[in-house]
Design a protein around this nucleic acid. Sequence first.
DNA 1: ATCTTGACCTAAT
DNA 2: CATTAGGCCAAGA
Length: 106
Amino acid sequence: MKKDTHNFFNRVYEVVRKIPYGKVTSYGAIAKAIGSPQSARMVGYAMNASHNLDDVPAHRVVNRNGMLTGKHHFDGTNLMQQLLEAEGIQVVDAKIVNFKDFFWEP
DNA sequence: ATCTTGACCTAAT
DNA sequence: CATTAGGCCAAGA
């Protein structure tokens, strides 16, 4: 048995990795999926570390409002939006159109 | 060990 | 309807 603290990040990565193409999810949903519905902030924190990994599509993760709050953390300013649009997701003003329609929950 | 910060969420004013 | 405040957990200095 190992520790769970280190697993927290790992859990987030696993869920995010399971996000299908052309779909998105929210930090809170992931937090809930890993068993910490109140640690939604930690999910975003984990995403920051996920920048080192390639298997974690952080651009598919947005806040509960469907807003690309983390777009500022990406390389460019509109990189995240472009990535989403490239997957068939409509994004306007850093917000996903019909977010609930693209919302995917583990 | 304490304090600050952070890609959030919910509720209250 | 918009803005503010608080809560939550974890990592860095």
